[in-house]
Write a protein that binds this DNA or RNA. Structure first.
Lengths: 153, 153
DNA sequence: GGTTAATAGTTAAACAGGTTAACAATTAAA
DNA sequence: TTTAATTGTTAACCTGTTTAACTATTAACC
């Protein structure tokens, strides 16, 4: 188990591709019928965890422009999964919360995804779990710190 | 460093989200101006590594329908980065290869991505490298094997 | 050999998600 | 009180995706 730096870089790229493509497509299959897309589920997840949040917050979390969030929220709002409430103190702000329907669908979908991921985790032995945790903590740290990375020309 | 199964599942989901969102957006910034999208670069990468390939192959690799590949290939073809060559033995088949221009752009872009990933890898100490390799190998194995996973209702 | 399958790729319509640029409404700062 | 900055939306446009129908070609079968 010795990799050159080149091989490590390749591994990272391959893993990133696999998680993105294969992982996302596995998760897509757990999502309720045609009711939600992947991104819509992530949006419900974020709002559920936050309890209530704003478009600006979602735009930062997802690293997209606010207009992209407006579009996603509109679709969820039209389907009755999200509520918009104007802040009476600062009337520019709109708080997003899940409706009862939205919360129910979110929980149901999330349970399926948990079952999927659980089958992954259960295939790890003790050593692999430790390796996973170490990698998870390191990668999260690096990805956050590299937010504004720029290659020198 | 002890995580419950619940926390492990959450970690997996968080990591998957981070790699997808933050990782992809970091890579996007390394890609040449507005010449290529992320998916277009992945397409050039696959063709370059294969030397030559077909739409069907790309559709399987990316886990999308062939018509989605046609759309991507069309855009790359219009910009002169990809060549289409009909197989004379089986005239249904079209081989995709990079043009000189396409190869040059691909290599230039890939170098930037390598530099980015290199800065990640260089932040790993020896133990973290071993943990990463173990996790990489395990996750790749699991993602491939779970290709047709279905949650029981 | 001639009909029927299957395969490779394309096209068209429709949708989701993304960007940019302009805007309205509101609040903060000068 | 005029000028900035912030929050969110809208409109135009692009990319990537699916479904369904289609063409062209090859393979399979009787």
């Amino acid at each position: 188990m010795t990799y050159s730096i080149q091989e490590l870089i390749d591994s990272y790229i391959d893993l990133s591709f696999s998680v993105h493509r294969k992982g996302e497509s596995l998760i897509r299959e757990q999502i309720e019928g045609d009711l939600l897309t992947n991104d819509q589920h992530y949006t419900l997840r974020y709002i559920n965890r936050a309890g209530s949040c704003t478009s600006t917050e979602l735009a930062e979390e997802f690293d997209v422009k606010k207009s992209a969030i407006t579009a996603i929220i509109n679709r969820l709002w039209e389907k009755g999964f999200i509520q918009r409430t104007r802040d009476e103190n600062d009337r520019r702000v709109v708080y997003l919360t899940l409706t009862k329907q939205g919360k129910e669908l979110y929980i149901k979908t999330e349970e399926k995804i948990y079952k999927l991921v659980e089958t992954f985790i259960k295939q790890f032995d003790q050593e692999e779990i430790q390796a996973f945790i170490k990698t998870y903590e390191k990668l999260n740290k690096i990805l956050i710190e590299s937010k504004d990375y720029k290659v020198e020309e």
